[in-house]
Every structure is written in structure tokens, then in C-alpha cells.
Computed example of a mutant assay.
Amino acid sequence: MRTGATFRLSGDHGGSAALVTRLLDLEPSCAFEVGDPVGRRSGAVRRVSLWLLSPDLPPGSELSDHLHWLLDKLEPKADTVWRLTGQGYVADWFCLAASRVTEHAIVLDRPLLRRILALPGDLLLDVMGDDD
């Protein structure tokens, strides 16, 4: 079973990832600015800034563990996250669940969902098979 979750803030309105880092006082797992190259050889540049926060949890951790980790970091900053979305940043919770057929159930209980709902952003679930 492979799982992961990333809280993402994108600034397609000209906002910067550096501003998100400064206002949240959290180091992102990864950040990109408008104008940064996309890939190594394509010649394309980013049209939006992107600020990503992902847990560094052991392989096989439950998806809910990833989300709880993110919430523990972001809930104390909820007012700032809401302010950023009010300024035009787009938030989402991008989640991965990759499993062999009938191997595992993902549990997102009501208390966890309530915590997610207290912050901005849609919950995106990428569910797929895990073929080695």
C-alpha cells in the first residue's frame, strides 16, 4: 500500500510561494515560483506559483496519518491560510492511495473530515492500483 497527502497552495493571480512561506512561517516540502522552468529540458516556464507541504512518514502509513500530520501543522495557521485563499490563492488536499485489488480500505472518519473542512481546499483523491 502506498499513500501520501500534500496540501497545496497555488497562486495563479501573481502570488508567490515565498510569500506563503513567510506568512505561514512553515517551510514547504517543495515550492515553485512563476517563471521557474518546468522540467529540465522542455523550455516551458511555470505560469503559477506552487507551495507544497507533505509529511515525511514511513512507507505503508495510513492516508489518515498523512492528513493528521498536515492538519497538526496547518490548524494553528488556519486564519492565515484562509486569508491567503481570500487573496486569490487556490488550496487543495491532494491524496494518493495505491493498493493491490481488495487489499486495503482507506478510512477517513468524521472527526478527520471535520478537521479538513475547517480549512480551505477541496479534497482530491487519486486512487489507483499498485503494480510493482
Rank of each mutant, 00 (worst) to 15 (best):
M1I: 12
R2D: 11
T3Y: 08
G4S: 12
A5S: 14
A5I: 06
T6A: 15
T6E: 15
F7S: 02
F7I: 03
R8H: 07
R8I: 15
L9G: 10
L9C: 10
S10K: 14
G11T: 09
G11K: 06
H13L: 11
H13G: 07
H13A: 08
H13Q: 10
G14W: 10
S16M: 13
A17W: 07
A18I: 03
V20G: 06
V20R: 05
R22K: 13
R22C: 04
L23F: 01
D25F: 00
L26N: 11
E27D: 13
P28E: 05
S29Q: 04
A31G: 06
D36G: 04
P37V: 04
P37S: 12
P37Q: 06
V38P: 00
G39Y: 04
R40M: 09
R40D: 12
R41W: 15
S42C: 04
R47S: 09
R47V: 08
V48D: 05
V48L: 09
W51P: 08
L53D: 02
L53R: 14
S54H: 03
S54I: 01
P55G: 11
P55H: 12
P55I: 08
P55Y: 10
G60N: 09
G60K: 12
S61Q: 13
E62R: 13
L63H: 05
L63G: 08
S64K: 13
D65Q: 15
H66Q: 07
H68D: 11
L70Q: 08
L70G: 07
K73W: 07
K73N: 06
K73H: 15
K73Y: 02
L74R: 01
E75K: 10
P76L: 14
K77G: 01
A78F: 04
T80S: 10
T80M: 15
V81P: 05
W82D: 00
L84Y: 11
L84I: 10
L84F: 13
T85I: 11
G86R: 04
Q87P: 00
Q87D: 12
G88M: 14
G88A: 12
G88F: 12
Y89P: 07
V90Y: 10
V90I: 09
A91I: 12
W93G: 01
A97Y: 06
S99H: 13
S99N: 06
R100V: 05
V101L: 09
T102Q: 05
E103M: 07
E103V: 00
E103T: 03
H104I: 02
H104L: 10
A105C: 02
I106Y: 08
D109K: 04
R110K: 05
L112D: 01
R114H: 04
R114N: 07
L117E: 03
A118I: 01
A118P: 01
L119G: 02
L119T: 00
G121P: 02
D122G: 09
L123Q: 02
L123D: 03
L124I: 07
L125T: 02
V127Q: 00
V127A: 05
M128H: 03
D130P: 00
D130G: 00
D131C: 00
